[in-house]
């Protein structure tokens, strides 16, 4: 994590001046605010933060944040962010993208990035639809569901991103709700602080195309008792944190508990499902190249290396 700037930074310091073109009421606003609140909470120097995004409505997020921002390719944000993180381990790296980006076209990278346990944060804006292309089913929409933008019901089932993240190896797995930016910010801040790969799947509304999972639906406005369809894990005594990371049995038990919770429907749990402090990819690199621990790759003098020994060995 980078050093705090001397002056106290507020949420305003993380806002760019670019006009925002998301639809009014878009869940992305809540996530954007959540990110900015988390950055302010952690007092991260905007020059030491690199945001990476995929393609889609959510992909525009870095443009609205006052930090280094890379709006990359559809589905490839994780490899790009990984390359960035490896080049400069002194920076805070946050990647984000939509559910189609991360769990569909980018599913291979979602899985393989989890295997590395690189120290970075990945936020998925999960709204069950492809918004920017006008509302097709995303990989999280369940079989048989049909939003107003779809000509037919979803013919295939949705995936369970939390369970997938557990299987892949993410060491911090949480779910947040875009329209509760304060809670979302807390979760994001914890994810950033976590040493290792952190996934935050943020449930998000798409007021334009997703008429199934609306603000009202999440709030349970249609239910007789008008009870929220969400509940916070920590409020029900759930603790997903592995106390002893050297104990494989505890790890498996906590993973199993997280997976079990991830299949709960109505109410849907939000909060931290799983957390474990395990060696990161960086730790493994430092074992191989110890000098990288103090000097990020980008600061190393790599030029005109002495290759004479390699050539001599070829005589």
């Amino acid at each position: 994590m980078s050093v705090s700037a001397p002056v106290k930074l507020t949420i305003k310091d993380y806002k760019s001046e670019l006009h925002n073109d998301w639809c009014p009421g878009c869940g992305d606003f809540g996530i954007l605010t959540g990110i900015q609140m988390a950055l302010a909470q952690l007092q991260l120097d905007p020059d030491k933060v690199a945001m990476f995004s995929g393609i889609g409505c959510s992909g525009k997020t870095p443009h609205y944040i006052n930090a280094y921002g890379f709006h990359t390719l559809h589905g490839r944000v994780l490899p790009v962010a990984t390359g960035g993180r490896l080049a400069n381990t002194a920076l805070t790296v946050i990647a984000l993208g939509g559910d189609g980006d991360g769990y569909g076209i980018g599913a291979g990278y979602f899985v393989n990035t989890g295997r590395r346990n690189l120290d970075f944060t990945y936020l998925v804006h999960n709204n069950n639809v492809y918004g920017l292309t006008k509302g097709q089913a995303s990989p999280t929409l369940s079989k048989g569901k049909r939003t107003k933008s779809m000509p037919e019901q979803a013919i295939q089932d949705g995936i369970n991103p939390i369970a997938m993240a557990v299987a892949a190896g993410y060491t911090f797995i949480a779910r947040a709700y875009a329209l509760d930016p304060k809670h979302c910010a807390q979760i994001i801040a914890r994810a950033i602080q976590h040493k290792g790969s952190a996934l935050v799947d943020v449930l998000q509304t798409c007021p334009t195309y997703n008429d199934l999972y609306t603000k009202e639906w999440y709030e349970g406005a249609d239910l007789p008792e008008k009870k929220s369809r969400l509940y916070k894990l920590e409020e029900r005594g759930y603790d997903g944190k592995v106390q002893d990371p050297s104990d494989p049995e505890e790890i498996v038990a906590k993973k199993a508990a997280a997976v079990a919770r991830s299949y709960e429907r109505e109410p849907i749990p939000i909060g931290v499902y799983y957390e474990a402090l395990l060696p990161t990819y960086e730790d493994e690199i430092y074992k191989r190249i110890p000098s990288l621990k103090d000097t990020p790759l980008v600061e190393m003098d790599t030029f005109h290396r002495d290759v004479t020994p390699l050539l001599e060995a070829m005589r």
């Binding site: 890379f70 490899p79 390359g83 080049a87 790759l297």
Partner: peptide
């Protein structure tokens, strides 16, 4: 893409 990310990051 990893290499592109690293290039942008300055290496």
């Amino acid at each position: 893409n990893m290499a592109v990310g690293a290039s942008h990051m300055g290496v």
